[in-house]
Simulated scan of single mutants.
Amino acid sequence: MSTNAPDPLAALGTLPGVGDAVDSVRKAVDRVYGHRVMRRRSNEVASEAALRGARGSAALAGADWPLEEVRRRSDFGAEDEARTVGAALRLTAEAGQLLSIWRQSPLRVLARLHLVAAGGAVTRDEAVGRPRVADEKADEPLITAPLPDADEVAARLDGLSRLVIAGSSAPALVMAAVVHGELLALRPFTSYNGLVARTAERIVLVGSGLDPKSICPAEVGHAELGRADYAAAFDGYLSGAPEGMAAWITHCGRAVELGVRESTAVCEALQRGAA
């Protein structure tokens, strides 16, 4: 990033409460990475984090299945909830394959994520893997804010892409929260927007180096905090006001910390030989 280029995210890191959230997340992540189980069994922890993260993201999208049901099922094409869970699982698996592309071509990654999410879809195939065009609507029942039109979506996606490519001095949590919030605000695809937004948040957290092994599933925390709190915090992002933005970023920070707590429990279970 040029030293003369403005960094629009830098100011967000100085908002009240954001610095504390960043520090708290960093300490939590460091603790779980320092767990003795991570020395030899980090792949098992990452696999379990992926499964639990997918379950959490699907729950926010309206498919709140028990973890063991997600673990047990192999057919995810039978009904709407099953398709949602299947999409979340596919996205979590795909995210790790897209890290190297994200910083060079985030729009390509987002298109790929939607294509993967909609892998089992049998309708609206012409809309899969590309942003909405005029007169197309987005299916995201959790978010009730007015839907930006296709021209606004295109312009703001371009701005988001340039922001990601330029990079930022802001902490990874801030970038992840902004990417997540902007994609929720735009709902750029005709379907699976929440799942894609949360996967993009995961990609930022992993690609930034904050969570390089992808063992801190923020989706778990978002689900645990609940759909009502998620929507309320997102309203803060939509407001654009400093206090609203700070509330959204700190909400995302709490979600990461809860994801860390989940993976710490997994580490403890593995250490006891219970998982």
Rank of each mutant, 00 (worst) to 15 (best):
S2P: 14
T3F: 12
N4Q: 15
D7R: 12
P8R: 08
A11F: 03
L12K: 06
V18R: 02
V25H: 06
R26T: 14
R31H: 07
V32M: 04
H35M: 04
V37K: 05
R40G: 05
R41E: 05
A46N: 07
A46V: 00
A49M: 11
A54H: 09
R55P: 07
A58T: 05
L60N: 12
L60Q: 12
L60C: 02
G62V: 11
A63H: 01
P66D: 15
L67T: 13
L67S: 07
L67F: 02
E68Y: 11
R71V: 00
S74P: 00
D75C: 03
D80C: 02
A82H: 08
L89P: 13
T92K: 15
A95C: 01
Q97V: 11
S100W: 09
I101H: 10
S105M: 05
V109Q: 03
A111W: 05
L113V: 03
A117P: 04
A117T: 03
G120V: 01
T123K: 07
R124A: 10
E126T: 02
G129R: 00
R130L: 04
A134G: 01
K137P: 00
A138Q: 08
D139C: 07
D139R: 15
E140D: 14
E140Y: 07
L142H: 07
I143E: 05
A145E: 12
P146R: 10
D149M: 07
A150Q: 12
E152V: 11
E152M: 06
A154I: 02
R156L: 09
R156C: 02
L157D: 00
G159Q: 14
S161E: 10
V164A: 06
G167I: 01
S169W: 01
S169H: 08
A170W: 06
M175H: 03
A176E: 04
G181S: 04
G181P: 12
L184S: 08
F189P: 06
T190D: 13
N193A: 08
L195G: 02
L195M: 12
R198G: 11
T199G: 04
A200C: 09
E201H: 08
L205N: 03
V206P: 02
P217K: 06
E219C: 08
E224N: 04
E224Q: 15
L225Q: 15
A228E: 15
A228D: 15
D229T: 14
Y230E: 10
Y230I: 10
Y230F: 13
F234M: 15
G236Y: 10
A241P: 00
E243K: 10
A246E: 11
A246G: 04
A247I: 02
E257T: 13
L258D: 09
L258P: 04
V260T: 03
V260H: 07
S263G: 06
V266M: 01
V266T: 15
A269V: 00
G273I: 09
